[in-house]
Design a protein around this nucleic acid. Structure first.
Lengths: 358, 358
DNA sequence: TTGTAAGCGTTATCAC
DNA sequence: GTGATAACGCTTACAA
């Protein structure tokens, strides 16, 4: 591991001159430059990024913390961040937060201690006030989940509107008994989606019925249990609004035999190829990541400029077949066409079309 | 941003003492310790990881470079690496290589320059000789794809055997005309799988037929084209062996109307819920990542110990329904049961069951 | 155009 | 048990 000094010694110049050559400083005689470059080659010299970074006080790294990197939604966010970062010669430090909120703080703080260029986080906890002192030093951007009333930048989807539209779509298909499937009502996204769902029903003059709300349905077991209870009701639902893709995927196996109609919040790979193809409210994780990363660089480049704190991205309904249901109570509008998942798509390749192994 | 010196000044001790307190050095009088700790709290002191790292000469970071982080297979590898790394207080620097092999070198070298603790790579190129000088400094581990004859550690699956078994399974179902679907024959994984497929047919006494080989089928368009050509053959195939999950997913949309049987190399989320459920040769990306990360730490901890360079992991067939085909030529053995994808699974949650959004 | 000196924040060494 | 000093590899400020 040759250092700059070694190169300088061999080339018969000072370390500073080597540094100048390295940084394309024009104030170097070209003959000197060549001598230095030769010495660099001879010694197989590679600059030590660690030292440069340390000196500059800021690591050329963007941190990204998401609940689960294997989830295609979050993976798409990460990939987008990475693409933007790479264009600025920055790397991406990825952290999976898992589902234990108590670990979140220590994980994030250990990231922050690394003098990151910025941190993008889709948090799993509920209190982020401990991040406040860091915010003044490191650009901090929330994605997918809002930081509550804390003054951090955030890019989220229109959960309320999306859920409203999704539930409404089922109502338009003639359903009057529409169940709600969710994970935990304490999550801000889930509660916003619940509010949208409830508003749609209420606007249609349908009285609220708590018996139709099922939480904890984000695992196969939980979803199965929920469906069983719902179908055992005196007046069982004819349709289900699933408030996130994880719930949607969890009910999938039981769905055919229940003949329930379904609309899910969140598109996912192969949603158009399962039985039945799932009608979804689609988000755009790629854009979420792109915007968040862009904001990090905006903040870095213009420390004093003011930016809009909270940006809400629109979502849109993709009609497939599941919104019909095989026990549809009324006539249906028109046969929806199959549309491939539009999420998780780069310009060139569909995320999921990529080969899954070697 | 208070530094150690600030704390030392406030506490009336030397920087070294603060350092000792920080590092739990027992040789500190407990009264001194308390004074220092108070000063740290007063100044909101947080150690600068960058400085520590620089001093130690080695970054507490494992690099992971994969073709695409959105691919659940690679995401599972990354998550496994991250889990192992976290247990050692290390972070994970993730890089998506994309599909442009010419970028690979510069991306990897820029990672290596950061004095990583180790680098785990599933490469997309063909020549990795430029990595050789780095290998002596930074533990380098290949996953999923072998480094050829280069002396690097690698953890790969048994591509040959898996493909052999997969093709064989179709033969047992009575198929005699089995097509091969692949991406690029230059990839070592693909060629090994092709060899396994060819061997199975040959052992069954079926003469090789080049007309049945279709490459470039790793996109929806490519797969469609391939199927069209195959079905237009004078003696069309009755079954298809797809050599990777990306190809499998790409043919999925056309599959039902062709009535072809299918076995794919590589499990994927929802493989059990698409129509028809896909019979696959399953790998174990979680284990691949775990072993690779483990090796990095083994090398780090025992620089002189010798390790087995190449480790080949077994794969196994998961029988679902697609291997039957609706135009099956003979009777079938027994009705396969639906099995959920076993890949991409942590102890607690199925990767894909995780919620895809907020 | 080139070089010198100092320092980024932390820790190892060795003295007290 | 504690502190002074030097050093990690690089770059900024200033001098020559």
């Amino acid at each position: 591991m040759a250092t700059m000094r070694d190169v300088a010694a061999l080339a018969g110049v000072s370390a500073k001159t080597v540094s100048r050559v390295l940084n394309q400083d024009p104030h170097v005689r070209s003959s000197t430059r060549e001598v230095v470059e030769t010495a660099m080659r001879q010694l197989d010299y590679v600059p030590n990024t660690l030292a440069t970074t340390f000196r500059s006080g800021r690591s050329p790294v963007i941190g990204v913390a998401v609940p689960d990197i294997v989830d295609p939604f979050f993976a798409a966010i990460v990939r987008a961040v990475e693409r933007i970062a790479l264009a600025r010669d920055m790397s991406t430090l990825v952290t999976t937060l898992g589902d234990d909120p108590t670990r979140e703080r220590s994980v994030l703080e250990s990231l922050l201690r690394r003098q990151l260029g910025g941190l993008i986080v889709a948090p799993i906890g509920t209190d982020y006030s401990y991040l406040k002192p860091w915010g003044s030093r490191t650009p901090l951007v929330f994605v997918d989940r809002s930081p509550g009333r804390l003054p951090f930048d955030s890019f989220v989807e229109d959960d309320y509107r999306g859920a409203f539209d999704g539930a409404n779509h089922l109502l338009h298909h003639g359903h009057r008994r529409v169940a709600f499937l969710g994970d935990s009502p304490t999550l801000t996204t889930t509660s916003a989606r619940f509010a949208g769902y409830a508003a749609a029903l209420s606007e249609a003059g349908i009285p609220a019925d708590e018996a139709l709300y099922a939480f904890g349905a984000d695992s196969r077991g939980g979803a199965e249990e929920a469906l069983e209870r719902l179908l055992g009701l005196p007046e069982p639902p004819t349709a289900v609004f699933s408030s996130n893709a994880r719930c949607t995927i969890s009910v999938l196996p039981c769905l055919p035999r229940t003949r329930l109609a379904l609309v899910g919040f969140g598109d996912f790979p192969l949603a158009d190829l399962v039985c039945p193809p799932i009608t979804v409210v689609a988000q755009d994780p790629e854009q979420l990541g792109t915007l968040a990363a862009g904001r990090v660089f905006d903040r870095l480049g213009h420390p004093h400029r003011r930016f809009r704190r909270r940006t809400v991205l629109p979502v849109h309904l993709i009609e497939r077949l599941s919104c019909v249901g095989s026990a549809e109570p009324e006539t249906l509008e028109s046969e929806p066409a199959a549309t491939s998942p539009s999420d998780f798509r780069t310009s060139s390749t569909t995320a999921f079309e990529r080969k899954a192994a070697g």
